[in-house]
Write a protein that binds this DNA or RNA. Structure first.
Length: 487
RNA sequence: GGUCUCGUGGCCGAGUGGCUAGGCAGCGGUCUGCAAAACCGUGUACAGCGGUUCGAAUCCGCUCGAGACCUCCA
């Protein structure tokens, strides 16, 4: 079975075929760096990290581009708006690029903690002003945009005569027209549906660049069009982002690309769903967002305690990327325990004894795992199959199931591939101590064994309880005691 | 108001015309000095009302409820 991906454009799953047999180009909308990264930012980062990892596992050479938006998004409407970055800078008395730098680093730290691989290219809007200006010039030349008072607007009605506007979000121009809210200062536009691809900068606007139309800044959606075509070509394989970007952002991107290059930017449009909290979308503007750092430290009213980055990752992966996932302490704690079970089994795999034959069909498990991923990256199904593997691992350890040496190798390979390489999970706990710690623990456990031999349960229990307070869990097995750090 | 999505057992969350994922919690058991862990067993859930069908949680219609987008948002 080959990889199928749900394409927002067609609203169905399609067999994934890259434009070039061996290479895949993927562009994902990154963050606007004017605030701390929150749980909502983790979703696309993780979703497309999985896509990136799996495509590479399948043998594709992937170029993954994720932008940093550090200019161009307006706070309000086009006319009276103020650049988000500039507003924050003014409020904090900082240089705009200082704000950008700070929050870019914060974003990187949080996303790295979630074990997301770095994109191959992470372009910034402010570093591609020239490319954006060139794009505006081309669209003007193609007569699908017009200039008014130093601003340039895409002429959506004219565009719609040649290309269908609204095909990604499933709307037609009439509906869009009817439902466009009346904003102030629309008089520069021929039609309310037109959108700015270049905006004249007001005198107080500090992020500004010279252009053929005077001092200004690029329109809301232009950076992604300019940067994706620069690094991936005018048409590339996958464009990703959050569902909330479908309209107008991605719709505008499609329009800009067609207006400029006479082609759609991407073959596949992938959109991750939202994370909700009490059933409502978690969003900065809604005031219910929880920063990733707050999750890691537990420092938030909604959080009963801290949660490790890997718990967040597992929590998100337990839902399919196109479904909403509802945040709660209870759900997070369930994820934490589930992941611990999975990772413990992964470690148990190392100390397992083999038999002459197997009582379990490993090939079938492997097929199921691939089938799950091939079905539009269905990580929850994959995880459910991996828990089947967990049961086998623990049963083999208990002696109620057997694995041959070959099958054990395959199972190790399977867990390495899917748990570590593709899902990108890693044990929460620190590497289990250095040599000194290990030797000390050997001594402690020896002492405890002596106590147990002497039926000195008080001493044995005391040692166990005290170690427990140090976050060390002692487990008594048939072949002696072992220990591990708790999460 | 327009467009669209969704409503699954205590919680989270897959699936989707018949074979009834998975995790967490609960209950019973095995193991253990006791624990922990693990393993075994256990829940007959799919908002409501109609319709299609031999058969629907899954298809269609209606009702109720929730949410998303239409404005920056991941």
């Amino acid at each position: 079975m080959s990889l199928q991906i749900y394409n927002t454009l067609s609203r169905k799953k399609e067999v994934f075929k890259p434009l070039h047999p061996t290479h895949v180009g993927m562009y994902v909308c990154g963050p606007t760096v004017y605030g701390d990264p929150h749980l909502g930012h983790a979703r696309p980062a993780i979703t497309f990290d999985i896509v990136f990892r799996y495509l590479q596992h399948l043998g594709f050479k992937v170029r993954y581009v994720r932008n940093i938006t550090d200019a161009g998004h307006l706070e309000n409407d086009a006319e009276v708006g103020e650049d988000k970055i500039a507003k924050k800078a003014r409020l904090e008395q900082l240089e705009p690029m200082e704000v950008v730098q700070y929050y870019t680093l914060r974003y990187h730290q949080a996303i790295e903690a979630l074990n997301c691989l770095s994109p191959n290219i992470e372009p910034r809007a402010t570093g591609h002003i020239i490319e954006q200006i060139e794009m505006v010039k081309q669209i003007l030349e193609n007569e699908l945009a017009y200039e008014t008072n130093g601003s340039v607007y895409l002429d959506v009605n004219k565009y719609n005569e040649k290309y269908p506007y609204g095909k990604l979000s499933g709307r037609n121009l009439e509906d869009t027209l009817e439902n466009t809210r009346s904003l102030d200062g629309q008089d520069e536009k021929k039609s309310p549906v037109d959108f700015a691809i270049w905006k004249k900068a007001a005198p107080e606007h500090i992020m500004r660049w010279p252009s053929p139309w005077g001092e200004g800044f690029p329109g809301w959606h232009l950076e992604c069009s300019a940067m994706s075509s620069k690094y991936l070509g005018d048409t590339f394989d996958i464009h990703g982002g959050g569902m909330d970007l479908v309209f107008p952002h991605h719709e505008a991107e499609i329009a800009q690309s067609n207006a400029c290059n006479d082609c759609d930017p991407a073959k596949f449009w992938m959109h991750n769903n939202m994370i909700t909290i009490n059933g409502k979308k978690m969003g900065k503007s809604l005031g219910n967002a929880v920063n990733l750092e707050q999750f890691f430290t537990g420092n938030h009213d909604l959080l009963e305690r801290a949660f490790a980055p890997m718990t967040i990752r597992f929590f998100i992966l337990q839902a399919h990327y196109r479904s909403t996932v509802d945040f709660s302490n209870e759900a997070l704690q369930a994820a934490e325990k589930g992941m611990a079970k999975l990772m413990n089994a992964y470690e148990t795999l190392e100390g397992i004894t083999v038999s002459d034959s197997s009582t379990y069909d490993l090939a079938e498990l492997k097929d199921k795992c691939y089938a799950a991923m091939n079905d539009d990256f269905n990580t929850p199904i994959l995880i459910s199959h991996l828990f089947d593997g967990v049961r086998i691992i623990n049963s083999v350890k208990d002696g109620t199931e057997q694995l041959s040496a070959n099958d054990l190798d395959d199972l190790k390979q399977l867990f390495q591939t899917f748990v570590i390489d593709i899902l990108g999970l890693k044990p929460n706990k620190e590497e289990a101590g250095n040599d000194l710690t290990n030797e000390l623990m050997d001594i402690v456990l020896q002492l405890r064994s002596k106590a147990k031999e002497n039926k000195d349960w008080d001493s044995a229990d005391l040692i166990r309880e005290e170690l427990n307070k140090l976050n060390i869990q002692v487990k008594d097995g048939k072949e002696g005691s072992s220990w591990q750090l708790k999460n």
